[in-house]
Nucleic acid binder design. Structure first.
Ligand SMILES: [Mn+2]
Ligand SMILES: [Mn+2]
Ligand SMILES: [Mn+2]
Ligand SMILES: [Mn+2]
Lengths: 218, 218
DNA sequence: TAATAAATTTAGGCTTACCTAAATATAAAT
DNA sequence: ATTTATATTTAGGTAAGCCTAAATTTATTA
């Protein structure tokens, strides 16, 4: 009945299920940093608790209860990230690990007070939407730079938050949420994308350009 | 190697050792809400980790390492309490349980930022001193109302924080930190203490008067 | 001092969340 | 259709942190 493990498993399963339709054992093991055998064990337990459906060899899918829990944890994680940035002067590359721990010791009341103190924010410091208290997640599917075409223009509305190093690099380049940029060239040779921002040309690697999302006004 | 248990044991041992010179098994068990046998187990493990000295039947005493850890946890606990009151509008009777959980997921950096955001506070919302980052605890030994004499006068500087109910009652009576009061009568019959505060007379039970501390200017 | 009571430790068990290695199932390649 | 490779599950174990009940030690009282 450990909170932390259950909650982290459910969050990871949620993510994998969103991306791939199902959460396979090995992907989960990699994401959680545990052995495959451990995952099989745990997934069975979570299935007993009716947080997910488990079909041997086919992976896991969350039940409504599981999804509710996942969204609650995502909400707490993102609220904490926002809170740390807003009230404690954290940078956007420093908040993930802290939130990863704080999310598990957050009461209903604490969640509400953080939400209120922040003025009920809609997105976290990386532009990821914050699920509502009722578990609604507004699915904003922005285009990543690698999916854009030359001369597309817009503001950065979201960046992938899985690498602090990448976030630091963006900061160094002067790129952040709300930065206005334009796609000036797509390099076929290596998949790079070259953008212009305030007159400067900035080349971005394929991985980088998959991690940055912009909103293009029609 | 769980953090939470280790840290809560060490904190409790610290408290018992301060009060009684040693932390006996049964007191610890009562304080932590576990069985006596469990305490014996755990105390041996903590002894192996050199956080305390354990003499069978004689109880436990913290080593310097143990004391350092205890003070670190007390510091984090009290900083969190102060933070919740100052930034999230918690009342003084609502912060203890939250802090009890948050203290275990607090990195060095988070501790520092909370400290800074609060302007390096010296005491928590109950008037308890906050140990410094270096582990210094200024020992302020104020007199409890039950130790005062009739016509003693001063301001409330500390209240015991182990009962939310009691804290709520104080609030209802209009008593808080910095409230100026005077001892108007000591009732021998039942051990009550009657105080005056802003003209009003307020009777306080023996337990209550042992829980309120004032500073009497010479 | 001997008997009794209270506190403490020991012994045997349980659950959770891990691990590793062996067995098995599924998918890919010949 | 086999063989081979990969993914997954099973089996057997471990360490924490807890429990209860029995044994033992220490303290109290007669
Ligand atoms: Mn987490
Ligand atoms: Mn984020
Ligand atoms: Mn605690
Ligand atoms: Mn306090």
């Amino acid at each position: 009945m450990d909170n932390k493990s259950t909650e982290d498993y459910i969050k990871s399963i949620y993510r994998l299920e969103q991306d791939n339709g199902t959460a396979l054992t090995t992907s989960l093991a990699r994401l959680l940093g545990v052995g495959a055998g451990s995952v099989t064990d745990m997934v069975k337990k979570l299935s007993d608790k009716r947080l997910l459906h488990y079909e041997p060899y086919q992976g896991a899918k969350l039940t409504p209860d599981g999804k509710r829990l996942a969204l609650k944890m995502v909400r707490r994680h993102r609220l904490w990230e926002m809170f740390l940035v807003t009230f404690l002067n954290y940078k956007w590359d420093e908040v993930h690990d802290e939130a990863e721990r704080l999310e598990h010791v957050t009461s209903e009341g604490l969640e509400q007070r953080i939400d209120k103190a922040l003025g009920y924010p809609k997105v976290d410091p990386h532009g990821d939407p914050i699920p509502t208290a009722e578990g609604e997640l507004i699915d904003v599917s922005y285009k990543s730079l690698s999916d854009c075409n030359v001369s597309d223009e817009g503001v950065i509305v979201r960046v992938s938050d899985d690498s602090p190093e990448m976030l630091q690099l963006l900061t160094k380049l002067g790129l952040g949420l709300n930065t206005k940029i334009r796609i000036s060239q797509k390099v076929k040779y290596d998949g790079s994308v070259i953008i212009t921002m305030g007159g400067r040309e900035i080349p971005l690697s394929p991985v980088m350009s998959k991690s940055i999302f912009i909103n293009i006004p029609e």
